[in-house]
């Protein structure tokens, strides 16, 4: 497995967000600079958006 770090830009603060392995669509990450909760909306090119607010039918 490649150890190359994969990066994208935080849409909230422009900081670099790192992934230690290839992220999947829908993956949730947190920006270590601004603490925004982010969602991977595209893997090619790797694009992040702010994670959506909790919806009514979400849960365990």
């Amino acid at each position: 497995m490649s150890t190359e770090t994969i990066t994208a830009t935080c849409p909230e603060c422009d900081a670099t967000v790192s992934f230690d392995r290839a992220p999947l669509n829908g993956e949730i990450a947190r920006c270590t600079d601004c603490s925004a909760e982010l969602e991977v909306v595209s893997t090619d090119p790797l694009t992040l958006e702010l994670a959506p607010e909790v919806e009514e039918d979400w849960g365990e």
Binding site: G26, E27, I28, V40, A51
Partner: peptide
Amino acid sequence: MTYTRLRV
């Protein structure tokens, strides 16, 4: 494994 958001 079906999902809608991939969490920890």
